[in-house]
C-alpha cells in the first residue's frame, strides 16, 4: 500500500570538503559549541568490553578518501537502541584517510516481528563527490549473515564478505570500505 504523500522530501546535496566546520568544528579550530557531537558512542566504555575499529574508504582510483565523515549508529550489547547513546561521528584523517572508532560490540538485534538479526553497526557516509549519503553495515560474522533471512536468497552471496571486518583477536577490527571495483562494498537503500 502506498500512502498519499503531500510533499516530497528535500533533495540531498553533497556535504562538500569542508563539512568539518559544521559537524566537527574543533578540527578546524572552531571551539564555540558546548560539546562536539558523537565524540564517543558510549560514555565510560570499560577496557573489558571495548572494541576498536579502523579503516579507510577507497574511491574508484583506489585512493583513500581524506575528507569523508562517517556517522555510526548501533544498539547496546543487549540489542536495544537508545536515543542518547550509540551514535558516533568520525572523520577520515586529512593525510592518511583513516578513521578510528572505539565502541562496544552490539548485541543481536531483536526485530519488531520477533526475529533476530545478526549484530551490526550502521555506517552513514558523506563526502565531497557524494550527492547522497552511502549507507552500509559492518557485521561481525560472515556465517551469521549468510544464514540471515535478509540475505539468504540474494544473488550477492559472493559480496557479503565486504560487510565483514578483518580481525585477529575479536577486539581490533579493520573495516575498509570500497566504493568501486572488485571489492565494492554492499551499500543499502531503504
Amino acid at each position: 500500500m502506498v500512502k498519499i504523500k503531500n510533499f516530497i522530501d528535500t533533495p540531498s546535496q553533497t556535504a562538500g570538503p569542508f563539512l568539518h566546520i559544521g559537524c566537527t568544528p574543533s578540527i578546524t579550530g572552531i571551539n564555540i559549541f558546548k560539546d562536539e557531537l558523537g565524540s564517543t558512542p558510549f560514555k565510560n566504555i570499560s577496557l573489558n568490553e571495548e572494541i576498536n575499529i579502523k579503516g579507510k574508504i577507497y574511491d574508484g582510483n583506489n585512493d583513500p578518501i581524506i575528507d569523508a565523515m562517517i556517522e555510526t549508529w548501533q544498539c547496546d550489547e543487549n540489542g536495544k537502541y537508545f536515543n542518547y547513546q550509540g551514535f558516533s561521528r568520525r572523520v577520515t584523517d586529512f593525510k592518511t584517510g583513516e578513521y578510528q572508532l572505539k565502541t562496544i560490540r552490539p548485541g543481536n538485534q531483536i526485530n519488531e516481528n520477533g526475529t533476530i538479526s545478526p549484530s551490526y553497526i550502521l555506517f552513514w557516509i558523506v563526502a565531497r563527490g557524494m550527492n547522497r549519503p552511502l549507507i552500509t553495515r559492518m557485521y561481525f560474522d560472515e556465517n551469521e549473515i549468510k544464514s540471515d533471512v535478509m540475505f539468504k536468497n540474494l544473488s550477492i552471496q559472493d559480496r557479503l564478505k565486504t560487510l565483514i571486518p578483518y580481525t585477529e583477536d575479536k577486539k581490533n577490527f579493520v573495516f575498509d570500505i570500497h566504493l568501486q571495483g572488485k571489492k565494492e562494498t554492499i551499500f543499502f537503500e531503504f
Partner: peptide, 17 residues
C-alpha cells in the same frame, strides 16, 4: 570515482533505521 558501480541493495528498514 566516489559513487558505487552496483545498484544499492533495497532492504526493509529495521530498528537501526
Amino acid at each position: 570515482v566516489r559513487s558505487p558501480e552496483n545498484e544499492p541493495l533495497l532492504i526493509n528498514f529495521s530498528n537501526s533505521e
